[in-house]
Design a protein around this nucleic acid. Sequence first.
DNA 1: AAATTTACTGCAATCGTTTGCGGAATGCTT
DNA 2: AAGCATTCCGCAAACGATTGCAGTAAATTT
Lengths: 325, 325
Amino acid sequence: MNNTTLKTISTVLNLSISTVSRALKNHPDISEKTKKRVTELADTLDYEPNANAIQLRTSKSNLFGLVVPSISNFFYHSFISSVEEESRRNNFSLLILQSGDDPGIELSNLKLLRQNRISGLFACISTNNSNIDAYLKLKELDIPVIFFDKVPDMVNCNKVCVGDEASASIAASAILKKNRKDILALFGNKNLLITKKRLAAFIETINGKASVKIIHADNSDDAELLTTKNITGKTDTIFCMSDEILTGAMKAIQKQGLKIPADISVIAISNGFIPKLFYPEITYVETSGYKLGKLAFTGMMSCIAGSTFVQDLTTQPVLIEGGSL
Amino acid sequence: MNNTTLKTISTVLNLSISTVSRALKNHPDISEKTKKRVTELADTLDYEPNANAIQLRTSKSNLFGLVVPSISNFFYHSFISSVEEESRRNNFSLLILQSGDDPGIELSNLKLLRQNRISGLFACISTNNSNIDAYLKLKELDIPVIFFDKVPDMVNCNKVCVGDEASASIAASAILKKNRKDILALFGNKNLLITKKRLAAFIETINGKASVKIIHADNSDDAELLTTKNITGKTDTIFCMSDEILTGAMKAIQKQGLKIPADISVIAISNGFIPKLFYPEITYVETSGYKLGKLAFTGMMSCIAGSTFVQDLTTQPVLIEGGSL
DNA sequence: AAATTTACTGCAATCGTTTGCGGAATGCTT
DNA sequence: AAGCATTCCGCAAACGATTGCAGTAAATTT
């Protein structure tokens, strides 16, 4: 079965295409009687306007792009969920693409999005030297770009991030408040900006008031191994800078049969899903992908509305008390 | 800055639009010299064809739709990730929409997808009486629909599912093999087809060879509560039909300080993420969203290719041994 | 030198929708 | 009865790309 178009309706009712178009948009020029005839036929024929034609005509796409290393990630899927929700609510569609941390795929994704004439882009750059130039080109085309989470290290772009310094600092304060003295602090890959920021803030807040052993783990398994290796009888607290690290550390702790918090305390930076799987629930500083998504969307809308103001926004993390500290 | 079009290039080079179009497509009618001039200018002007115009002209969209209750779910995000990956690889884009289990939103999502003239749809229907008619309408328009996971209870449609009966049966067999005698079996909402299927297969396989207490929980918290309430000194095994249920049960087990597997055994049906967070890792029957995604995509491609064969495919689950049974 | 082939390139219609402009019919005023 | 506003509607161009057909110039044949 073919799709019905304005033309279909117009020929059936012996009207011109323009009249049908206007009737459907409730244009004052059209009589009520005609409007009724048109809308009724449109209804029975299940008329749906062709988005491609409209976008071509108006050169407005009502389409956002989102590129991310992987949908299936501790953090991103809640971010994506949030952005999708807002987009839909505001009559935008969202084209989601994964780069798999491959700069080549990343590039062809951007190309695809340009071909689809997106109105804006949410981007999380891949860790392996992604090509920032391609993003800058979008800006030249007046397509606003909001970077999130993994953002480029340049000033002149819109970014939304969880409060990296703040979250690490809050965690450190919470530890000090409990008078802990011997901390095993697990961080991620030391080349990532996020790691650097969290590490610096953590150290600064601890400020020598407790002994801290810094460990860098590249993934969950690594974190498990390094936790097992570096935990000593004196260690009273484990800090994990991310969910991925936390899962590894928890594995090690359970393996050794350590009781939380009697034998050892745990605190993490997390969006909250993993911490709540355990009992006692792990105390964590919340960095919500959901909230970040809302923030990103707000930023996008103000860009769309014509703001040229370059934003560097940050969500305010909060401490969620479990029973692990 | 405006987007460059064929027209831009044609006026600069003093050629007709058609020549430019053909030159870019390496048409034999065009001389090498002209081709070179055109491609070079297109390159420096960063020409990208307007997908809307092409789709309007060809009435082929290269766009798939995917509707799902929520992206941010134990299972779906890996399914989505998988489908996105395959789509991209096959030069399709994917429009992902969440229904939030709201039939109204679900309907408007379908409408949106129709307006975008999608070439095919992956759909997971919402639990609250979703409107199947809207899906049937797509079929009338020759838009293939592949239902996944939560599929409608009718024969004449394409479905891909994890092997519900098989997975429950495998779990039951594994329990019997270990000579367990007193099982607390936790299932989800009893109105869901998936629950019914898993429950029936589980019971059938156990076949009276062990005592089974069936409990239905609607969510994770519910599962925790009901586990605590129904576990007895005699209970030697807990079966969880899903990740959501598993997280609740694990919470209860940890709370009571029960040792796995010394005090109690645990087995679940899961995609594997949650089971691997614990030590010992939970033994589970794998129902991979990733694999299901690949299966769904294969089905879609054969529909696109013109197959009218109605498929009802099922992934083959496998038992992954942790140390919990 | 005329006729025919070959190599390039342009015209114009098409996809479905929107919209400025102008036109016809009607009713109302003087 | 002539002039005017009002109401309703259609023409045609435009968005950007594709493609069948036709046209022109040069190269080749006769």
